[in-house]
Amino acid sequence: MKVVVKAENLTKRYDSFTAVNSINFEINEGECFGFLGPNGAGKTTVMKMIYCASPITSGNLFVLGLDVEKKSREIKALIGVAPQENNLDPDFTVLKNLTVYARYFGIEKRVAEKRAMELLEFMQLEEKADVEIPELSGGMKRRLIIARALINDPKILILDEPTTGLDPQARHLIWDKIRELRKFGVTVILTTHYMDEAERLCDRLVIMDQGKIIVEGHPRDLIERHSSKSVLEIIDPSPGVESYLRDSGLIIEKGSDRIYVYADNPQQLLHELNEKFFLQHATIRASTLEDVFLKLTGRGLRD
């Protein structure tokens, strides 16, 4: 498999603050690779270094075999970027946003217009071609940003939090489109806070915290490696439950109103608890990436 992005001891420092601390990763051609992590983990900084908007402090970073420190124009010509912040051009209509953007890539006008219409259709925005940007909904703006990122037929598509703040319909549409793009062989790199999004889309992902990669792998493997098969949630537990669970040597975690028990055999445990205590409410569910994430990065707020 061909490696399209390769980072070696990649580091980004702002004055005394280290945003990305000597990380290593490789992204393969055609895969969907996710960067997960709480706010301030360094995900967006990594994205910005990949698309050459932010210079690296030390280490090496190669995109499509090109060194970001020497070949930024060439790299930027080959990739598409959908940033976190809406930076569509409010001075132009939807269609003109795409054709003006195409011009920055040196794409000829006729080709640009044809491609722009195709992309609007692909993102289900063809009826909005002549609409002004402020009139679009949040979901439409996101779709247009993704369409814009595809204008140069990129080999790598970078999506920085593609569905943050969108309603479920808009999120599902964007997920479908990302899957479709992957079928065309586009490598997708995305950052997200949403574990369900990562679980659905990513072939491989890394979880970052405080500028470091703390774990890497396929979503299902990560769940198997770092969490139990199931989680038992005991809501409003009576006083003795916690110490009983601790004494039994189980892995537990305390929330404000509940205890999470990471158990491979939760039915039996629930039965056992029901005999000894009065449990108001308890549920058993399968472990998710969110459990892995919270276990590895903790439950404390980050900003």
Partner: peptide, 14 residues
Amino acid sequence: YQKTFDAIIATPLS
């Protein structure tokens, strides 16, 4: 406000 420069420097322009 418009972040137009940010959008442009993600293309081959410096």
